[in-house]
């Protein structure tokens, strides 16, 4: 009976423009978790949307914020397309910019 609840896997692709990296993000997984699973050294600390360490700039594509970014990001950052990777669900393939850790 529990098999009724299982859903089909679906992926979007995320491209980090300034580092020439690309990875898959499965539906239901946030951008940060998918990047870390792929071995990408994406900066992060709290993973719950409170510290702002995983901030990135969305260049192309659509995301759905899991929480209100307004508590952590400034007004200007929001207007410039910044978002938090740990609270971003993808709605399409995306292209982003981020400063990766060395």
């Amino acid at each position: 009976m529990f098999n009724l609840f299982k859903k089909k896997a679906k992926f979007y692709s995320a491209k980090i423009l300034n580092n020439d990296k690309e990875f898959k993000v499965s539906k239901g997984k946030n951008l940060l978790a998918a990047a870390l699973d792929d071995g990408i050294n994406w900066p992060h600390k709290c993973r719950v949307g409170s510290c702002g360490s995983c901030k990135y700039k969305l260049i192309k594509g659509k995301i759905s914020p899991d929480i209100d970014f307004g508590y952590v990001l400034s007004f200007d950052e929001l207007n410039d397309g910044y978002a938090l990777a740990c609270q971003s669900s993808l709605k399409s393939d995306v292209e982003v910019e981020i400063e990766l850790k060395k």
Partner: peptide, 10 residues
């Protein structure tokens, strides 16, 4: 709910 996520976890 807000204090737990934005304060406690940080």
């Amino acid at each position: 709910t807000y204090a737990h996520v934005y304060n406690h976890h940080l």
